[in-house]
Design a protein around this nucleic acid. Sequence first.
DNA 1: ACAAGTACTTACCCCAAAGTGTGTATCCAT
DNA 2: ATGGATACACACTTTGGGGTAAGTACTTGT
Lengths: 126, 126
Amino acid sequence: MSLIKQSSTIQQNKKIALNLCPVTYTLEKIGGYWKPFIIYHLVEGVKRYGELKRAIPAITEKVLIQHLKQMESDGLIIREAKAVVPPFVTYRLSVAGLKILPVIQAMAQWATDDMEQSTSDHLAAD
Amino acid sequence: MSLIKQSSTIQQNKKIALNLCPVTYTLEKIGGYWKPFIIYHLVEGVKRYGELKRAIPAITEKVLIQHLKQMESDGLIIREAKAVVPPFVTYRLSVAGLKILPVIQAMAQWATDDMEQSTSDHLAAD
DNA sequence: ACAAGTACTTACCCCAAAGTGTGTATCCAT
DNA sequence: ATGGATACACACTTTGGGGTAAGTACTTGT
């Protein structure tokens, strides 16, 4: 899955950051390009792979799978496959995935606030 | 400032994501590699450029400046320079920067919770 | 017999973020 | 006059995430 060079400075720094900073830890888990979208759609409930794909048309299959695998191994979502053919695979949020929803909600709230404020100008905080 | 190719698919997708998803908007602003560290140190109050540099030894000057410029133009922090020599430049959080602190706090909280949970095993959410 | 649907997998390319290294103007202390 | 401190700027390289495109195994529908 696209090998990573553990020796590279960037990986060393990532380790430093993960040790020192819990915020970086969280960013690692939800920071993928389309991960917020996936979470958003899984809030509605259990979804099949194909449903997610159709719900997010701009995402490519490779990246979708990639994100799903990462989020699964990160414990954010749960994959369940029925041993039938054609395959029947579903995804849903785990406990940790559910617990992160308020955080995401807070991020969204700040964003909408900030977008409104930006129409007027930023002023200094004394 | 490293020019960006507006035509690339990734930039197109970024625009799509920013329009559709406020979470992505927030991730854009705090998602930089060392931005959480910068914010963390500015919580203590006004800091000079050199103080920040010494507070985060692993960061290079280029990336530090880069992040500071971005965060300034994003309205998260405020730069103030005294017209003296040698230069005297300080950075501090703006209103928007202060408002995002609870969000960051929530992210940190989720992270520490999740790290604890990960020592035991993840179970499905019914 | 052939296409369509399912859930992936693999090889390859592109590019922007991060890292490396050097340069700059001015002042002060030694 | 030489070096250090200040706050950057600029050119260059690396790297890893994301995009493109094609293939796979197996079944059902026509």
